[in-house]
Design a protein around this nucleic acid. Structure first.
Lengths: 178, 178
DNA sequence: GTCAACGTGCAGTAAGGCTGCACGAGAGTC
DNA sequence: GACTCTCGTGCAGCCTTACTGCACGTTGAC
């Protein structure tokens, strides 16, 4: 519930209900009601509250379910394959929303999927070793070890290894898409 | 503006105003007004609309400002230092919100900052080479090359290199915190 | 021509976001 | 003890505005 989230943000910062209300330009009563779920804020008050916290409205709706600390080691990771692809991605993050980081090794000639793929996210590939070819719509980019590429996942894209050696990559995707 | 985002999502799917309105259980007129910014939706209608799209409310407020493709190469990257730390992070992503991926090399003995640090995010470190020590509150974790660690950044934490060789890491943070 | 579906202007209504004021609880001071 | 300050909340009422129903102009298919 949005009220819980706001309460959390407020208490985290040690602010009183009145202090936050004043900074946001709303009444303390309203804040109290919102935090307890008695009423729901309008977008305009939501904007003001987010402003005080220096946060985006989006972040007020994101689930901050605390995943403490999670370590993954090679061989113990759950894997993930694209529908028509040959690559097997390994999950570096527990699959609980908010952030997805994957690891993969592409053998020579391997592609992430037969067709170009799109989903509403932003992703960033870092090439650990080898050479990666990225196809975005009609463009083709080559990324070497130590380099990275960031792309809007809405644009149809796929990854492939056009070289003669293995390519190792780390892929960060946000928001995660199943 | 939220209306633009909704319009985009609707047209992307080839839906008519009336079709979406019916599925969401609101009037076509209201949708029209919202899309044009004449009025702002309540959270309850926002929930219904997000439901039809199979999206979260948060995603409706995320900026899909298309950053196309962005390639970063070593030496051409903007850097970023923690307040009291010795590490210099290199940015792998353009700094436009949504996702931040950093790269860093820690010399032997280097720490990310003198004090433990916390911010409302989720982060994932992948160790490319060397050995990384992660301190989270009173716990200490050791992460080897090829391994990764995910943590709730709200918990006070810092990174250090306790080994005798360089440690190279890739760090994904979401949401980004300046 | 008809017909259907598209998105929008307008006026009215009902809902609920928002406020001001007052109250009880708790902590600190004299 | 009383006095005071700040904390969060109950309540009643106002008043903005989200939301609807109906009608209109336009476009394209037949």
């Amino acid at each position: 519930m949005i009220g819980d989230r706001l309460h959390e943000l407020r208490t985290e910062r040690g602010m009183s209900l009145r202090a936050l209300a004043e900074q946001a330009g709303v009444s303390p009563t309203l804040l109290s009601q919102i935090e307890r779920g008695v009423t729901e804020p309008s977008l305009s008050t939501l904007r003001r509250l987010a402003g005080v916290f220096g946060a985006s409205i989006a972040s007020l709706f994101e689930d901050p379910a605390a995943p403490a600390v999670w370590i993954s080691r090679p061989g113990e990771r759950s894997t993930l394959g694209a529908p028509n692809g040959q690559i097997r991605y390994e999950r570096l993050t527990p699959g609980n929303g908010q952030l997805e980081v994957l690891h993969a090794v592409l053998a020579p000639g391997e592609v992430s999927s037969d067709e170009l793929w799109s989903h509403p996210s932003l992703e960033c590939v870092y090439v650990v070793s080898g050479m990666l070819t990225v196809q975005v719509e009609r463009s083709v980019y080559t990324v070497a070890a130590g380099e990275s590429l960031t792309l809007d996942s809405n644009r149809p894209h796929r990854y492939l290894n056009d070289s003669a050696t293995n390519t190792e990559i780390v892929l960060a995707i946000n928001p995660p898409t199943p």
